[in-house]
Nucleic acid binder design. Structure first.
Lengths: 117, 117
DNA sequence: CGTCTCAATCGATATTCATCGATGAGATGA
DNA sequence: TCATCTCATCGATGAATATCGATTGAGACG
């Protein structure tokens, strides 16, 4: 904040010479970032993120037949979104009788939350 | 956990009768969820998320010319990703001479982090 | 068994998106 | 003024994705 006035590199330099401190980026962090991107991508659709929001507000489980009328898409489309969320480890489901009940698996969201901290 | 054994609805019911407690989802929460989806979507690409990771590790700013060799894509592609991050309010940039320096704007990430809590 | 219901899957389609190469914009310096 | 450098933007292309309607599969019930 205070003494960074000379961060701007000199324009005159040998070709290929770096303009500033070289940035290092370990493979370990790269792998973790890739995992976080998978979670964020699953949350990156408005419908999917709203589904997660609804599930979190109803701390137990929510039946798919209750989820469908909340959104302006067909049942098959919502099922597709639920699969994406399942594949990312964000939600899971349990069948009872004819119905399927979905619930949030907090671990994935907590992973992302921690990464953001 | 303990007393949810009778959550499964009776199969026999009048047509159209809900299978469980109706779910409500206020428009206010819906709007907030849409905003979070924008942020999550911007983070949902491995390269973009790694860019944010690098910028966070270098608390000040990082020159684009240092960013480019870190990733296996061309300069124009990286510029495209940086624009996406800018549009989502996650990063911002400042030009000094020929160079452009990018830095993280913590607010957007903090918004998402708070939502995840 | 046959039929009904709910949810998952399939196939098709239109849109979005990541990527590239080329070009443009702006600054620097000869 | 002109060449060079960095980065942003443009246009095109192939891949991924969101969506739909139709079908399938699994349970429940009679």
């Amino acid at each position: 904040m205070t003494l960074e006035l000379e961060l701007a590199p000199k324009v005159k330099r040998a070709p290929g010479e770096p303009c500033c401190e070289p940035v290092v980026y370990p493979d370990v962090e790269r792998a973790e970032a890739e995992r976080m991107a998978v979670i964020a991508k699953a949350l990156g659709d408005p419908i999917r993120l709203q589904v997660v929001d609804v599930l979190r507000r109803h701390a137990g489980e929510v039946c798919v037949c209750e989820l469908v009328p909340l959104f302006d898409v067909g049942q098959s489309t919502l099922s597709h979104h639920l699969k994406k969320l399942r594949d990312a480890g964000i939600v899971d489901s349990q069948r009872r009788g004819l119905w399927a009940y979905y619930y949030v698996r907090p671990d994935a969201l907590e992973e992302l939350r921690t990464w953001l901290s």
